[in-house]
């Protein structure tokens, strides 16, 4: 265990549970939006001061999540070893094609490709989780912390599906896109990981550099529902 932990040498830069209180909370890709929202609209920012927009009637809500721990897991021939490690560490099975597995609200592993999965967890747990997975795996498997590279948006409400329909060519009808399903697709030409968390609640993971563009797009798309 300690041996494998020592192999992970890069880690000073990561937020860890034991150093977290001393560190400033990392800025999200859309941190610059939040103050503007607070001044310009009645709905203001979210509970955490993160960017958030809502309609008055609650039909639509758009919010950016605080920076979340994201680990890319890759395994080809040794996927069984990864599956074992994941079930031992988190009690999760490795999701099959276009699906995801969650443990509570914070931890979720998504199928990305036949040999790639994306695991999300609270930021301060990411390093610890990476170490635990590394010590549990055996074989040719890659784990990469990509927490800083993405922004996660939550889109929810009865009008959320309508906003998605305007933004992506993917068929988001509940018959085809049911809770737990994950697709890599294009949204307004930006590459996203789209997940149906539950009925009328969607999670959009987008590259950090596209976050501002997609935020403005969704804000505009929600205008017909009086998103403010």
């Amino acid at each position: 265990m300690s041996n494998k932990q020592a192999d992970v040498a890069v880690m000073d830069q990561y937020l860890r549970a034991d150093t977290a209180p001393a560190m400033e909370r990392p800025r999200t890709a859309l941190a610059h939006v939040a103050p503007a929202v607070r001044h310009a609209s009645e709905s203001g920012a979210g509970d955490d001061g993160n960017p958030a927009r809502h309609t008055a009637d609650g039909a639509l809500s758009l919010e950016e999540k605080p920076v979340t721990g994201l680990l890319t897991l890759r395994a080809g021939a040794h996927r069984e070893s990864l599956a074992t490690a994941l079930s031992a560490t988190l009690g999760l099975v490795l999701p099959e094609r276009l699906s995801s597995e969650s443990a509570g609200n914070e931890v979720c592993v998504r199928w990305m490709s036949p040999d790639e999965w994306l695991l999300s967890c609270p930021l301060q747990d990411a390093f610890d989780l990476e170490c635990r997975l590394r010590s549990a795996i055996d074989g040719h498997i890659a784990i990469v912390n990509v927490s800083g590279g993405y922004s996660i948006l939550n889109l929810s409400g009865s009008a959320a599906q309508n906003v998605l329909k305007k933004s992506t060519a993917y068929d988001v009808h509940p018959d085809n896109f049911m809770p737990g399903k994950v697709v890599n697709t294009l949204m307004a030409k930006a590459q996203v990981v789209l997940r149906c968390v539950e009925s009328d609640r969607y999670e959009i993971i987008v590259r950090r550099s596209f976050a501002d563009y997609l935020w403005l797009w969704l804000q505009r798309a929600g205008r017909e529902h009086d998103l403010r």
């Binding site: 094609r97 276009l98 060519a169 993917y170 697709v183 697709t185 294009l186 030409k189």
Partner: peptide
């Protein structure tokens, strides 16, 4: 054939 779904040409 890997996603086992029809997807838009754009992708």
């Amino acid at each position: 054939p890997y996603c086992a779904e029809h997807r838009e040409e754009d992708e």
